[in-house]
Design a protein around this nucleic acid. Sequence first.
DNA 1: GAAAGCATATGATCCAGATCATAAGCTATC
DNA 2: GATAGCTTATGATCTGGATCATATGCTTTC
Lengths: 188, 188
Amino acid sequence: MLSDPFSHLPPTACRTIDTQKGDVLFRQDQTTSGLYLVVSGYVTLQRTGLGGDILTLHRAASGGLFAEASVFSATYHCDAICTEAGSVVKIAKADVLATMQSSPAFSQGFTRLLAVQVQQYRAHIELLAIPSAKERILVAVQAGYFDATVTELATRINLSHEACYRALRGLCNDGHMVRVGRGKYTLS
Amino acid sequence: MLSDPFSHLPPTACRTIDTQKGDVLFRQDQTTSGLYLVVSGYVTLQRTGLGGDILTLHRAASGGLFAEASVFSATYHCDAICTEAGSVVKIAKADVLATMQSSPAFSQGFTRLLAVQVQQYRAHIELLAIPSAKERILVAVQAGYFDATVTELATRINLSHEACYRALRGLCNDGHMVRVGRGKYTLS
DNA sequence: GAAAGCATATGATCCAGATCATAAGCTATC
DNA sequence: GATAGCTTATGATCTGGATCATATGCTTTC
């Protein structure tokens, strides 16, 4: 189940955790203890703004890794909340650091994972720069962002959910997308 | 001059390049040959949208590293353009990969740099989610984004330069900032 | 020192998206 | 099966920022 580089870790480094919807894996400013790999279900990384508004930074699906940067950080920088039941593997920070010392293969694999993250974030910043709501949604859907609810998509791409619904309808009218059911849209 | 982890690289891995304003270090989709460290001057990482609009992804100042992810990528994902004369050190991709195999200290140092990048991008995404122009600028200035022109700041935080000037004036009226000269503003 | 090019402003207008309001459908729970 | 809470959906209104226009100041260059 563990992806590539993690096979180099000692078995004791990993702990499987079953999650329920709404479970909190960690909160912002908590002391870091490790990083996580999603086995099944979904985990949302979010920050709560001063005004109480929720910002989704990342949504990790099956196979997705998150909080990798926590290995080099004293505290978590956002909240990790399970939006759907499933399970995650928690990998102890100390073991990651130790294995980086002993295994070049692990080191390189782990670094590659971080590099992928960097590229994903860059792509996301680019997406957020698209001024038109319709275009932004179209690109987001093409990039596979639309894997849950419309409301969830909206918060990820800095749109109100109303604007998101309207833009989706517009894209359907334009023939770029097709409505295939309540809250279900696909590219045409 | 080289920061921490790069002292583990063979001397031949690094090449110093003097840059003039406007110099292009690499362009999107070019084959990757290495990563860069800014010694002096500024390098902007940008992508040109389909409509010809320029999006600034990152701005590397003295001591800043960029294109680290290129080590694991076949092509560059954006353009690197020098916005001010100075010099950069180019570090060969092959040497980075080789040294990761041989030196755990380098590996860990390099990975830490990527982890920092991840956190910076996360913070940037958070910044972009701030709806009000005035607030967004205030946070950006506090985060040290305003190190060049107003126009440059505007493109980095997804605002028109007009909106940026107006918001700066507004922040001065509110007493949050002070205009200290033509195009110069500081926090009060 | 004239001309070109860019950053700095600021005013006027317009519109896309935020916000507010409303309602219906689906799910879970007691 | 009633209630609560959520997502979906759409209409009405309002506003903040984009866009367009204009002008001035600073640098660079020939």
